[in-house]
Amino acid sequence: MTQSPPSSADRSALRASCGDCFALCCTAFGFQRSSDFPIDKPAGTPCRNLADDFSCTIHQALRPRGFTGCTTFDCFGAGQYVSQVLFDGTSWVDEPDSKPEMFRAFAVARQLHEMLWYLAEAVSRSTTLGSAEVPTVLRVRIQQILDGELADVLAVDVESLRSEVRSVLIDVSAEARGGYPAAGDAVGDLHPSADLAGCDLRARSLAGADLRGAVLIAADLRGCDLSGVDLLGADLRDARLGGADLSNALFLTQPQVNAAQGDASTVLPDDLDRPSHWSLP
């Protein structure tokens, strides 16, 4: 038996609202010149394309201008949380001394919000009350941190918490994939952390496969049924997803979708948006 993916109501607060954020992703994080960015930008400095109102002056032309990395990033709602909740709507421009703590808080909160995204799905995928208890308890713990003070967020041991969440997700994945033919296929190239870059997987039976952490860069997945496929942390950059069904894939995120190549016939979970840069069939 397969479970339905979580409803939008479960994760509605974990979606970015850029208009309520002080452009934290454009300031707090740095990047180096690469295929994703045409320039170097040190962490803690505003992007040269940032306007005074925290909007992007080249938002409609990010990809043509070489800022592909900007179009794949997602903060899982951490930006507006830090801007409006932790710092009460007072920006780093109005209070320059707040920059170090605000940017540190954003880096932590982004990871906590991402964990909440996964755990919401873990609860939904659990087949029994017992198996849902552990991810539920973890969700409550993380939410309590986020409901606390700035000091509580900055004091989090992110790596330890992430390790706990990862263990839960692995257990839930095994349970959710149990009814699929490929669930036990760890032989050959269908396994966690597999290097499948550039592979043509269209003729493979993938449903239920554990591709957690797999490298699927430029892999051809057109028309594939990815139901029950664990994609936790999988690298989907330029993966060809035209006509693929990801509606019931496990632990898929917006950044992964944004980094892939899909079209109007690609089927996505209800929680995820179809990227504007995806081509039409």
Rank of each mutant, 00 (worst) to 15 (best):
D185T: 04
A194Q: 04
E175Y: 04
V153Q: 02
D152M: 00
D157C: 08
D195K: 14
R202Q: 14
G178C: 06
A151F: 00
V165W: 11
A194N: 03
A176Q: 08
V153S: 08
A186L: 14
G184C: 13
D152E: 06
Y180G: 09
R177N: 09
S193M: 08
A176I: 01
G208Q: 10
I170V: 15
C199K: 12
A151L: 04
V168S: 08
P192L: 09
A182N: 05
G198C: 07
S205P: 02
G178H: 12
L150Q: 11
I170Q: 12
V168M: 04
V187A: 14
R202D: 02
G213C: 09
V172K: 02
S193R: 14
L161H: 13
D210F: 09
S163C: 12
V172C: 04
D200C: 01
G188D: 06
D171T: 13
L169Q: 03
D185K: 05
L201A: 00
D200V: 01
E175D: 10
A203R: 12
R204C: 07
A186M: 09
P181I: 10
E159M: 05
R166V: 12
G198Y: 01
A183K: 01
G198S: 06
A186D: 07
V158R: 07
A183N: 13
D189S: 12
G198D: 04
A203K: 08
S205Y: 01
V158A: 07
L150F: 07
A186F: 13
V187E: 14
A214W: 02
G208A: 08
E149N: 12
A203Y: 00
A214E: 04
D189T: 06
A214D: 01
D189A: 10
